[in-house]
Design a protein around this nucleic acid. Structure first.
Length: 214
DNA sequence: AAAAGTGTCAACCGCCGGTGC
DNA sequence: AGCACCGGCGGTTGACACTTT
């Protein structure tokens, strides 16, 4: 019977950060639950992972959000709802936690959005049921509805060898820099492979085509 | 100066899906 | 098939900082 570990909670100290960073430098990321055993750090695996992902990882950008980032987040949230990890994946250097906090404390107020419990908001209200349909392959009550972003993927733009689909739901992209504009233009292949809401970007005919393959 | 109110954000919690045995 | 473990996600909490009264 293994001894029961008592894990520390609360803010991380500089010493704990150093122990964690030293461990990752040697062993790499992953196996988070081993860290406490190997290093003696009194933190659970989840806490270690979170600390690394949100704070210690060299790719994490600190400081205020720029106007470009705000604009990008607003557009992505409108499109994806509260899919913070997906949104953060399109905002260079920002973590899902940062994006979520920033939305809840700044942007939702700025836009006058009421805080709700919906797992997805904006134009993505169908997501869970669409996903269910995608997973089960069974009949869907949405099979005859008009999807929110009809024919969004009908146009393609080539950027650096990738095929991008414009999802324009109001407002132009002209004020954005090249980098952020690229981030906003969705790679169709990427969406198809990784985004469970991809169905919502397709028009009705495309849906039938996709579902017929299931 | 100090108490109360408000804002911010790091961290925790519970849940879920994937994987290996 | 069932279980345990792990990583990832989004919602929520709570400590701290800052502002207002």
């Amino acid at each position: 019977m293994e001894e029961k570990r008592e894990y520390k909670k609360g803010l991380w100290t500089a010493e704990e950060d150093k122990v964690l960073m030293d461990y990752i430098r040697v062993h790499g990321k992953g196996k988070w639950n081993r860290i406490a055993k190997v290093t003696g750090l009194k933190r659970c695996g989840k806490s270690c992972r979170l600390r690394w992902m949100n704070y210690l990882s060299p790719g994490v950008k600190r400081g205020d959000f720029s106007e470009e980032e705000n604009d990008l987040i607003i557009r992505l949230h409108n499109l994806l709802g509260n899919r913070w990890s997906l949104i953060a994946g399109r905002v260079p250097g920002r973590t899902d936690n940062q994006v979520k906090n920033h939305w809840n404390t700044h942007l939702s107020k700025k836009l006058g959005v009421k805080k709700g419990k919906a797992k997805s908001g904006g134009s993505s209200q169908l997501s869970s049921k669409v996903l269910q349909r995608q997973n089960n392959g069974g009949p869907s009550e949405y099979s005859n509805t008009t999807m929110p972003v009809a024919a969004a993927c009908s146009q393609r733009t080539e950027i650096e060898g990738n095929s991008y689909s414009p999802i324009d739901f109001g407002g132009g992209l002209s004020a954005m820099s090249d980098d952020y504009e690229k981030a906003f233009w969705f790679s169709y292949n990427d969406l198809e492979l990784h985004n469970p809401n991809v169905m919502e970007f397709l028009d009705h005919e495309s849906l039938d085509f996709v579902w017929s393959d299931l």
